[in-house]
Design a protein around this nucleic acid. Structure first.
Length: 674
RNA sequence: GACCCCGUAGCUCAGUUGGAUAGAGCACCAGCCUCCUAAGUUGGGGGUCGCGAGUUCGAAUCUCGUCGGGGUCGCCA
């Protein structure tokens, strides 16, 4: 609960206590549950304890001494609490005048803007965005929007992870199809996502078969290297049983076989035509997919083979164009894209490793290099600073083949990321499972002597989104894409719109905006630390979602203001001269509206300092909910007299201003009608 | 074994520096459009806040322990 007015009352009371008793205990106030306990309430127990007086005595003293302000009607002592009853009309005048006079209520316009980088989405650039990715995007987007609304200059960055091992097979598959004249039959990123799922499965099948081959287990069954049959599985299973392979490996291989069979069959069913085309092309053109994929990746990593670079870029750029299209549909925009490959080509990684090694922060194990997190953190004050009192595990930076892994490039990237935008802070929206990797980026920067930079980096972590059946797996084509989700939501909304008397264009606009708000809100409202189990039916049901509820409250409010002239009411001039209004609050729900609207700026500030965008969503819901109740209980245009009419018009208009601010932060579109 | 997160109504979740009688939505039951858009609203039932201690005038909230679920912890990104 937040209130500037209540805070100032608190401060006055605090002054009295300081004068009389030299008290250090901080007074706190809260809004009582029931209106007959007043509008704000101070528990006096702690103060009583420090003065060794009773709460009653302290209360009496406070009542006797504080200057009666016009904002307070009366006071009451009850059960150790000092309860104050507010002059609600006075309060309304102050707050509503303020809301109405401001361009955007709750917005900060600082002259010297903080510069903030928000890195978000950074999805696998070989498959379309799915519901798991969009949680990242929406959280990142809203955090950035919050910063911007509260006066920061925000730079949205997308880090393109284009050096993953899983990418090379996709490139191979993409160009096999392309050269064979097979064209994409869907949106490009979805097309590439299909190739990814197929190629990855073909590769894994190839690999497990090679593994059996190396054990001299070769079934006498006609088959390709890229396909598994039931008969082969039976053969492998039987042979494994009698082989000398150790138990653990047996189990692993068997498990992998069964998984691959399941995935293969499911892909065969889902992507039947493409499955066959790609498999046949592989059989014809590629003898050893594993080897070829490695050659591709090595070629791209070096960055010198122009043709190879073009191939990788073509595919990943295509995917990204699909991502961008989807993100824009969801009201999400990036300013810059950073390529992991460019970090690699920059040659920074080698220097960083050398430097860390020189300072003896790397542990060698054969060719492998491990970052000694705990050593760095203990020696350089990192643990004290971040209050870590356990042993931080090492992180592997270079594998035993001497290949630098992802975290190396992440360290190099962060070394320059802040400079690229001259940022005060950098927020990385990255899943919770990356906790150690993200922590290691900062310890590594400490190890390099870049304390200041490390301290500017914040890992904003969030929990995964799971499907009802299990995790989402891009490799298995097991996901609901954001595009699909949007269509599903839109269809639901369109059935509601059927009996509305709007033009097709307007219906289309409403359906789009409501769908997006519905999805955005449903993700936003959940605490980032909670695992979301995604249920498509619920996600798409307008009755379950609050996005439409918010937009509807806005449309209703606007409708009142628009209808006013027809009833001979000049709403505009009432609003213009809000300071002249003789406020007359008659119902508790009117007071609730006003008291809740006062909290908005504080809700936003707190959401930012705590990085909890869900609190904005939940506040918006409370406000809209109170408005709907107000709407039913308090007819505005039929108000019985001028004072009541003016009061209610001011409330309705202020409410629209509140929602406009909240919508801007949440990335939800306003609608004039629904 | 170490560390991080979660556990509140049948389901999904709020619950703010510890405050008075723990709240919504969905689902279920019963109402409200001659009145600003019923994507709304009114009422009802439904709770051992995982469990156990501790601190406190006061604990869903803080501390410790414990149970259950998820995640991370040397060769994925």
């Amino acid at each position: 609960m937040y209130s500037r007015i209540y805070d100032s009352i608190k401060n006055q009371l605090q002054e009295i206590l300081k004068d009389k008793h030299d008290i250090t205990t901080e007074l706190v106030w809260s809004k009582p549950h029931s209106s007959n306990l007043g509008d704000l309430s101070f528990p006096l127990f702690n103060v009583a304890k420090e003065t060794s007086l009773t709460p009653q005595d302290i209360g009496k003293e406070l009542i006797e001494n504080f200057p009666m302000m016009s904002i307070i009607d009366r006071s009451e002592l009850k059960g150790g609490f000092l309860n104050l009853f507010i002059n609600q009309n006075e309060f309304a005048k102050i707050i509503l005048s303020e809301i109405i006079s401001l361009d955007k209520y709750g917005k900060s316009n600082l002259k010297e803007k903080k510069r903030i980088i928000v890195e978000h989405t950074s999805a696998n650039p070989i498959s379309p965005l799915h519901i798991g990715n969009i949680r990242n995007s929406i959280l990142g987007d809203v955090i950035g929007r919050l910063y911007r609304f509260l006066g920061a200059k925000v730079n949205f960055r997308y880090y393109v992870n284009d050096l993953g091992r899983q990418i090379a097979p996709v490139i191979i598959g993409y160009f096999l199809l392309n050269n064979d004249g097979i064209k994409p039959d869907t949106k490009i990123d979805i097309w590439i996502g299909k190739i990814y799922a197929l190629m990855n499965t073909f590769l894994e099948i190839y690999q497990i078969k090679s593994e059996f081959e190396s054990l001299s287990l070769i079934p006498d069954i006609e088959s390709s290297s890229y396909e598994l049959s039931e008969a082969e599985i039976e053969y492998y299973q039987a042979k494994l049983d009698t082989s000398s392979v150790d138990q653990q490996q047996k189990e692993r291989m068997l498990k992998q076989l069964l998984k691959l069979l399941r995935v293969q069959n499911s892909l065969k069913e889902k992507l039947s035509e493409l499955y066959l085309q790609l498999k046949n092309l592989l059989v014809l053109n590629v003898e050893d997919l594993d080897d070829l994929a490695n050659k591709y990746l090595v070629g791209y990593l070096a960055g010198e083979d122009k043709e190879m670079v073009d191939k990788f870029r073509k595919v990943t750029q295509n995917t990204l164009s699909g991502h961008t299209e989807t993100l824009n549909l969801y009201n999400i925009y990036h300013d810059d894209f950073d390529w992991e490959s460019e970090v690699s080509w920059g040659g920074e990684v080698g220097k960083i490793l050398a430097q860390l090694d020189k300072k003896e922060f790397l542990r060698h194990d054969g060719q492998a290099l491990l970052l000694e997190n705990d050593k760095i953190a203990s020696q350089l004050g990192f643990k004290e600073k971040y209050n870590i009192n356990y042993e931080i595990p090492d992180l592997i930076l270079v594998n035993s083949e001497g290949i630098a892994l992802y975290p190396c490039r992440d360290i190099a990237y962060h070394l320059h990321k802040l400079e690229k935008f001259n940022a005060n802070y950098c927020i990385n929206v990255i899943g919770k499972d990356q906790q150690l990797a993200q922590l290691s980026v900062r310890t590594a920067l400490y190890g390099l002597g870049e304390h200041e930079k490390a301290d500017k980096i914040l890992h904003y972590d969030y929990e995964i989104v799971t499907l009802v059946g299990g995790r989402m797996a891009g490799r298995e084509f097991e996901y609901v894409t954001c595009d699909e989700l949007f269509i599903m939501a839109k269809n639901e909304i369109e059935t509601i719109l059927e009996n509305r008397d709007y033009s097709t264009e307007i219906k289309e606009d409403i359906a789009k905006k409501v769908s997006i708000s519905s999805i955005r809100y449903s993700i936003l409202k959940i605490d980032s630390q909670k695992i979301v189990t995604f249920d498509a039916k619920k996600a798409v049901d307008p009755n379950e979602n609050t996005g439409p509820f918010l937009q509807y409250s806005y449309a209703r409010a606007l409708n009142i203001l628009q209808k006013a002239p027809k009833k001979g009411i000049d709403a505009d001039s009432i609003i213009q001269s809000v300071k002249q209004i003789n406020f007359d609050i008659r119902k508790e729900i009117e007071w609730k509206m006003i008291s809740l609207m006062e909290e908005l700026p504080f809700v936003l500030k707190r959401a930012l300092t705590q990085l909890k965008p869900d609190t904005v969503a939940n506040y918006a819901f409370s406000l809209a909910s109170v408005f709907h109740k107000f709407y039913d209980a308090c007819p505005v245009l039929l108000a019985k007299d001028k004072d009541s009419l003016d009061t209610r018009i001011a409330i309705v208009y202020s409410f629209t201003k509140c929602l406009e601010s909240l919508f801007e932060v949440m990335g939800i579109d306003t609608l004039e009608k629904m």
